[in-house]
Design a protein around this nucleic acid. Structure first.
Length: 276
DNA sequence: CAATTTACCTGGGTGC
DNA sequence: TGCACCCAGGTAAATT
């Protein structure tokens, strides 16, 4: 599943092939994603030039501008989406729903479960941060604004578990299901603890661990990164998980069997001895 | 009213 | 071979 690290690796992978290039053609083969791909998108995009490729949370933002048109193409990979470049004329396989042809390269979106999104945010509607899907997002985990103090203050009075609170993305983005379990393990915090009852000192342990685990995953993705021009995209890399998906296996620190619990219909993994 | 919980979208994989 | 069922993440809707 593409989480923030995969999306960031994708951003780095596709940006060189897009920035400064003119969009020559757009193909929409299957508009039924999480939300419909806007009907006029091909007409809007064709002829614009990609100025930047940014990321906000798990959203990719392509800054596109041309004569009389400007805005951002918003891409989300959902839980099964990926992007890669293919040679022009490559016949689309099943689940390959969307193409962006720019300067001889074709960026192709594959998404079997169609939980992803391709949306357009006109510049006239303000910056992308004004878009309803982006407006409520928390801070970026690598931004200086993300601090133990901020986490502490934002969670006072909250009764929801610290794991679910991180996952919700309203305080900090990018801590998906895998990285929530992993970072809480590294910080030795029990995932079931009410967010409002976690001390400032514990959040001071957690913040650097969140950054470390995300940075590690990005590095790993960068190092295993395939050629976005010819091959099949970022190929989801796996961190050497310490607790995630390790139910029943011995904790790498103390040997106690890792437990799996369900919080908000989602799996959480933790070590009952190391995390309290 | 804000916080919290539940439902839903889809299709690959699994087990019978 | 077919089919019921589970699971995944992010958002909307429902509920507290």
């Amino acid at each position: 599943m593409p989480e923030l690290p995969e999306v960031e690796v994708t951003r780095r992978g596709i940006a060189p092939g897009l920035v400064g290039r003119r969009i020559d053609a757009v193909a929409v083969r299957e508009p039924r994603l999480r939300w419909p791909i806007p009907p006029g998108l091909a007409r809007t995009l064709t002829g614009t030039t990609v100025r930047r490729v940014d990321r906000r949370g798990k959203y990719l933002l392509l800054d596109c501008a041309g004569t009389g048109r400007a805005g951002w193409l918003i891409l989300h990979l959902g839980m099964s989406g990926s992007l890669r470049f293919v040679a022009p004329g490559t016949p689309p396989a099943k689940h390959e729903h969307f193409d962006l042809q720019a300067g001889g390269a074709v960026l192709r979106l594959t998404d079997p479960r169609r939980f992803g999104a391709v949306l357009w945010h006109p510049a006239a509607d303000g910056p992308p941060s004004d878009h309803p899907l982006l407006a409520g997002l928390g801070v970026e985990p690598f931004a200086p604004e993300f601090s133990a103090q901020r986490l502490f203050e934002a969670t006072r009075g909250r009764t929801a578990s610290v794991k679910q609170t991180l996952l919700a993305g309203a305080i900090v983005v990018g801590v998906g299901n895998i990285y929530a379990s992993e970072s809480l393990f590294r910080a030795r915090i029990h995932p079931g603890t009410a967010a409002g009852r976690v001390s400032l000192a514990r959040y001071a342990r957690l913040v650097p661990e969140i950054r470390a685990v995300l940075a590690e995953a990005i590095d790993k993705g960068g190092s295993t990164l395939r050629d976005f021009r010819t091959s099949d995209g970022p190929g989801y890399f796996q961190l050497d998980y310490r607790v995630y998906d390790r139910a029943g296996l011995p904790c790498r620190v103390c040997g106690t069997p890792i437990r799996r619990i369900v919080q908000g219909q989602r799996s959480t993994f933790y070590c009952p001895r190391c995390q309290r």
